[in-house]
């Protein structure tokens, strides 16, 4: 599968895309030409950590540490990476 996410991969928000917190929506959004998506809490937490430096493994570890009560979130996090890559919201460094 071409979109396979590896633990050593490093990602950043896609070119010409902007990720920000929206007070009026109480949510994170990704903005791009002709459109926007509103991300629910967890999805926003993943994208927030993509700084062109952290590996996927580091993002997963950080989320696990930040949300210790959430069980088995790794599959969900990888799922979010896959979705974001497929939608071209993020780019591989």
């Amino acid at each position: 599968m071409e979109n396979k996410i590896q633990h050593s991969d490093v990602y950043a928000i896609a070119l010409h895309h902007r990720f920000q917190w929206e007070e009026a929506q109480q949510s994170y959004v990704i903005l791009f030409p002709e459109g926007m998506v509103k991300l629910h809490g967890g999805a926003g937490e993943v994208i927030k950590r993509l700084d062109a430096k952290a590996t996927v493994a580091e993002v997963v570890a950080d989320l696990k540490a930040t949300f210790p009560d959430a069980e088995g979130i790794e599959a969900d996090i990888i799922g979010m990476f896959e979705l974001a890559l497929e939608k071209a919201w993020i780019r591989k460094i």
């Binding site: 509103k38 991300l39 629910h40 967890g42 999805a43 979130i73 969900d76 979010m80 979705l83």
Partner: peptide, 8 residues
């Protein structure tokens, strides 16, 4: 709260 179902 993660994955496709949460992206609206």
């Amino acid at each position: 709260s993660l994955g496709e179902s949460v992206v609206q």
